[in-house]
Design a protein around this nucleic acid. Structure first.
Lengths: 352, 352
DNA sequence: GTCCTCTTCTTAATCAATTCAGAACTAAGG
DNA sequence: CCTTAGTTCTGAATTGATTAAGAAGAGGAC
């Protein structure tokens, strides 16, 4: 059986292809009676409607934006921060009838192909740790907005001042009197490890991702408070509950034990709280913990953390993408705020 | 400036359009040296690569599947159950380089248009409460799998036995000795309310959504345990934390207060726990609570609930969609299991 | 020299629509 | 009766690629 197209229907009804097209897309362009007959025949023949790819090709608009992650999609959906961002993005996209095409990161070459083949009107690059495929994305010559990292000259950007925000978090803890402080860095996803990543000789700036920038902020605060950076306990983990647990265990197993831990994300902070509970360490009595992000689960858990406007980041990114491009490319830095809850307190063991 | 297409490059290099196409899509079909020259010229001209819509049109394959929700996307991302499902679906989709096109439900007509215009190879209908646009989706004549509801003859299906699972949950509570039981029904999203929805004369079967089916299961257990259904406290809510809180408050405000509440989703159960804590009602001392789904937050909260394999539902749906269609259309009912944790106990107030 | 095969490239058809300019017809105004 | 405007429909060009079939030339075997 031949495929049913506009032409099939046109032949059957005895009108031109154009008229059938109009019956579907521009009802005002033809007689109501004829239109009814056309739609009726279309129904009889089981016509699936105008072919979306053909339509997109001719119209030059897909009605979809691509959202590109640095991780596997399945991983992104497990991350409250990513999901919260999507929530905001989806909200504005939906209002204009725009769909979301989610693109994950199973492997570099698959991702490259998927990006090249995506039928979209623009891309949102969501990557807390920088994105290796920026080149591939820019080559498509579509509107792009990057979120968090990397900042690319001339490309609209949405992010926060990670370094300053992290510094504020650390200063809060140091201000409470803590001196035995541990810092957890979140490193790029497995397989993309940068060996020099923890080397702070290079300042953590926009190019190195949120993990590095926050680390640099902790560094600023510690040095500012008169601590030697080398005396600060330093460990790294990925933004994964299980790996973070292992790192937390390494830190809490030390002697003397740190009295405060600065976690680069709430997810990592939750892992620290887990392990502390498991080891019978009282929070905040024996241990202060600070997170970062203020994901929805942070408030019920009483976690002291840095709030960033997660959903608003999504709505802002969506607007930058859907609204006509502005010159120069906007670079939006959203506000952050330290939220003090019940996981931080002055150290009880006041000595060094 | 004219748009750069394959033809532009072909003219510039002095070869045919076909050869340029091959340079991008089938490197083995032409001389390596010529290919390098073509790609070089493409780079100079800023060619964005073969046009995805044109490619899709000709090839007849998009490499994307559409996932259709019954709610706004922004709402779906707030729902752990939906996100868990997506996680599973994304996992199998990614393996075959397939993208996900997420389609929400801002309004009926927008959704209809988006479905008609989606450049996809198939649809996954994710709808715990039935889906009003099944017709629109089927009209596209693409592979479809429905998840949870509705079950459509001849269309692959993934779901659970809601009614039986809910019955098991209720029997657990009744078995503990509870007699003053309250039941919460989750109703379709606002604006799609069915007035007769709570009328149990019509059995809650596959056509009426998970909310109805679970309600029917609670009903079965109560009647089976010798309770009069009219003595069971019945209220309804949506699957939304705030609305569920209001419903919980209505129930817990009654006198005599129920000693057990059966919640149709974990989200609703959390709201009940919240309100109970707020009112100083001890769980499980004064009140037993059972949820449904076993979302990730259920275990840390100690919530007794019905576990359904959320992520596995996603992977199963993905496979049914991506693998060649089977005859007859598979209808997969996944196993459920009652998980007893710390929110259920025998009633202390043993009287009626 | 002829035949055959390989590699490399081209020609022309095809995918399924949208859109612009214009034709045919009707009705109203002068 | 002629002009003008409005409605309804058609023809042809256009969107940007892929693909099957075939042509041209080189090289090897006999």
């Amino acid at each position: 059986m031949q495929r049913v197209t506009l032409q099939t229907i046109a032949d059957r009804v005895g009108v031109s292809r154009t008229t059938v097209s109009n019956a579907f897309s521009r009802p005002d362009q033809l007689n109501e009676e004829l239109r009814r007959r056309i739609l009726e025949v279309a129904g009889e023949l089981g016509y699936p409607g105008p072919h979306p790819a053909a339509r997109t090709l001719r119209r030059g608009r897909a009605g979809v934006i691509g959202v590109i992650f640095t991780e596997e999609l399945s991983y992104a959906f497990a991350d409250s921060y990513a999901v919260g961002f999507l929530r905001g993005l989806a909200a504005v996209a939906e209002q204009s009838g725009t769909g979301l095409h989610l693109i994950g990161w199973p492997s570099p070459d698959v991702a490259e192909e998927v990006i090249a083949d995506a039928v979209v009107d623009g891309f949102c690059l969501f990557s807390p740790e920088g994105h290796p495929l920026v080149e591939t994305v820019l080559r498509r010559r579509l509107p792009v907005v990057t979120v968090d990292y990397p900042y690319v000259e001339g490309v609209p950007f949405v992010g926060i001042e990670d370094r300053a925000a992290a510094r504020a978090a650390a200063e809060h803890v140091l201000g409470l009197g803590h001196r035995r402080v541990a810092v957890l860095g979140v490193q790029p996803a497995p397989g993309r490890t940068d060996r020099d990543w923890l080397d702070l000789d290079r300042p953590g700036d926009l190019r190195f991702g949120a993990g590095r920038a926050r680390l640099a902020g902790y560094h600023d605060a510690c040095v500012g408070a008169g601590l030697e950076w080398k005396d600060v306990v330093l460990d790294r983990t990925a933004n994964d509950r299980e790996l973070a647990r292992q790192a937390a265990f390494r830190i809490l197993d030390r002697s003397p034990r740190p009295t405060a831990i600065l976690a680069p994300t709430d997810e990592v902070a939750f892992a620290v709280l887990d392990v502390a509970a498991h080891l019978g360490i009282e929070v905040p009595g024996e241990l202060s913990v600070v997170g970062f992000d203020d994901v929805p689960a942070a408030a019920p858990a009483g976690l002291t953390t840095v709030r960033q406007p997660i959903t608003e980041k999504g709505t802002t990114a969506g607007r930058l993408l859907l609204e006509p491009a502005r010159e120069p490319a906007p670079c939006v830095l959203m506000p952050t705020e330290l939220v003090v809850r019940r996981t931080t307190a002055p150290p009880t063991d006041a000595g060094v």
